[in-house]
């Protein structure tokens, strides 16, 4: 029983970090309709900014976290402006964007390999990882509870942004029909920049928690594959779907690790992807609003 509750908490914690990454990825997908493979790069940039500012400016995780978020958000905007905007202004074929994003992913990864090197780095112990007794039911770590709490906080903030603000409404409209939202007076280029900023910012939060969990290295961005899988399981382009898929994935991974074998977790993850694609290719909450003709 103890193990079960403990693994559920761990699973939700891991899943909620996946959700931060998957939601940003899904947001970009819903607007521009391509898989942004450079999304993992945003996460790594967030991680490294946090690592170096922690070392340089005293161990203040709040300040470093903020800088990491803003930094990754700005880099995300730059990536879009440099690599994607010239393409989307010339063609509607999203395949080119996909290829460009693979290129940007390689560029970002290798910038870190050549500048700071490929070795594994541990963040200084600024986020507590002590064991915590969870209401006498199970023992878990403070880190898991913290990352779960922070992820919930950021996802709630995103939800409020999307549902209560003018630009949030514009993003929801644009995710249905980008061109028509331009007709409504929305500066589409600015909207896309905002979306990339938000995606980069959320990826940085995920990146910081993942750097603590797994240490930081230039290829840490590959973990985004899990977030892609989560987004597909939940339904590409759907934000609640991305969160749901991430939580399911996190739970499946941790329960597999706890009760079967840690080596089986990826098998389960990709097995779930295959099953989803077989039975429900549009995902659990894929876009399904029907339109009368």
């Amino acid at each position: 029983m103890d193990t079960l509750i403990q693994q559920i908490i761990n699973g939700l914690s891991l899943g909620s970090v996946y959700a931060l990454i998957a939601v940003g990825y899904s947001l970009v997908y819903s607007i521009l309709l391509f898989s942004n493979f450079a999304h993992g790069g945003f996460l790594v940039i967030g991680g490294y900014i946090c690592y170096y500012t922690l070392a340089a400016m005293g161990h203040n995780i709040w300040l470093s976290g903020l800088l990491a978020m803003v930094g990754a958000g700005v880099v995300a905007i730059l990536v879009e402006r440099l690599a994607y905007k010239p393409i989307r202004e010339r063609t509607n074929v999203t395949l080119y964007l996909l290829i460009a994003s693979m290129g940007m992913s390689i560029v970002i990864e290798n910038i870190f390999v050549v500048t700071v090197g490929g070795r594994f780095r541990a963040l200084p112990p600024v986020i507590p990882t002590d064991p915590v007794n969870f209401f006498g039911l199970a023992t878990t770590s403070a880190f898991d509870l913290l990352s779960l709490g922070m992820a919930v906080l950021f996802l709630a903030a995103l939800q409020i942004f999307l549902s209560k603000t003018k630009w949030g409404l514009a993003i929801r409209a644009a995710s249905y029909d980008l061109r028509t939202s331009g007709l409504m007076g929305v500066n589409v280029n600015r909207l896309i920049s905002i979306v990339f900023f938000v995606a980069g910012l959320l990826a940085a939060v995920g990146g910081i928690f993942l750097s603590v969990r797994y240490t930081l290295y230039p290829q840490l961005g590959f973990i985004t594959i899990k977030a892609f899988v989560a987004a597909v399981i939940g339904g590409l382009g759907s934000l609640p779907g991305a969160v749901l898929g991430s939580l399911i994935l996190g739970l499946a991974e941790m329960l597999t690790a706890g009760f079967i074998s840690s080596q089986m977790r990826d098998l389960v993850v990709f097995g779930m992807l295959v099953l989803t694609l077989l039975w429900r290719p549009s995902g659990l909450l894929g876009k399904q609003v029907s339109e009368k003709v």
């Binding site: 409404l169 929801r172 409209a173 249905y176 939202s181 409504m184 007076g185 929305v186 876009k287 339109e291």
Partner: peptide, 16 residues
């Protein structure tokens, strides 16, 4: 905008 409500559609119109 099919997935938005009627009210939200009208609010999109007033964006500028």
């Amino acid at each position: 905008f099919a997935p938005l409500t009627v009210y939200e559609n009208l609010m999109m119109g007033s964006f500028p």
